[in-house]
Amino acid sequence: MLAIRDLHLSFNGNEILKGIDLTVNKGDVVTLIGPSGTGKTTLLRCINCLENPSKGEITLSDLQLNYETISKKDILKLRRKTAMVFQQFNLFKNKTVLENVMEAQIIVQGKKKEEAYKKSIEELEKVGLLDKLESYPSELSGGQQQRVSIARALALEPELILFDEPTSSLDPELVGEVLRVIENVARSGVTIVLVTHEMSFAQSISTKIVFMDKGVIVEEGSPQFIFEDSNNERTKAFLNHFKSNQTVGV
């Protein structure tokens, strides 16, 4: 359903992504893991063109695009098939919770108000925030904001949802509520690409784990394979680092 071929991206002469090939099937939950500064988030942001890759091709269902020749129209089409959940939530500050979830349905998708309202209520109920409809983002906790932002993404019924470290800027006690919501999304059969540092969560919900290091995909496979059976030195070193960190309690 999603296929990326030979993706390259440079920032000021530094090559961040050095030829990435990635395939995601419908209904997959693909998690990108790896050390910081490896380009996981950058790769995710290439999928909806928040970054400008210097080379590469992307196929998303019936859209087939080359990054070197991509037009504004194509970018818009690509973005309208996907939705993103950001590390910093990025809810619209001048809109209430309900407006945040409703507006894109009306303006971008051209739905009728009533229909958009029903869908918004439905999604907000799933994330447990029906009592906050009239609140502004600044009145919510980080965990609540992130749940709204997930509802905003789901309300558009995208073919693919991109999660960019959705729990990394949350207080530890708020991580759980967001992970539970993401877990439900994953169970509902939506196709997901996720970047996270929550290793046990990644292991439990993913259908495929992709381990990246220094701008390349080192290896990919089932959670079982990556976390238990991998013989790759870099993968093992990275995961061991996590295990030792976790036992120290960091």
């Binding site: 818009l76 973005r79 500050k93 507006e103 303006i107 971008v108």
Partner: peptide
């Protein structure tokens, strides 16, 4: 914040609507 632009972009708003609405 840059994130406000990115959120609108990622949802598929045109730049004109993004500027007017947010």
């Amino acid at each position: 914040e840059k994130g406000q632009h990115e959120a609108a972009d990622s949802l598929g708003y045109t730049s004109f609507t993004k500027i007017r609405k947010f």
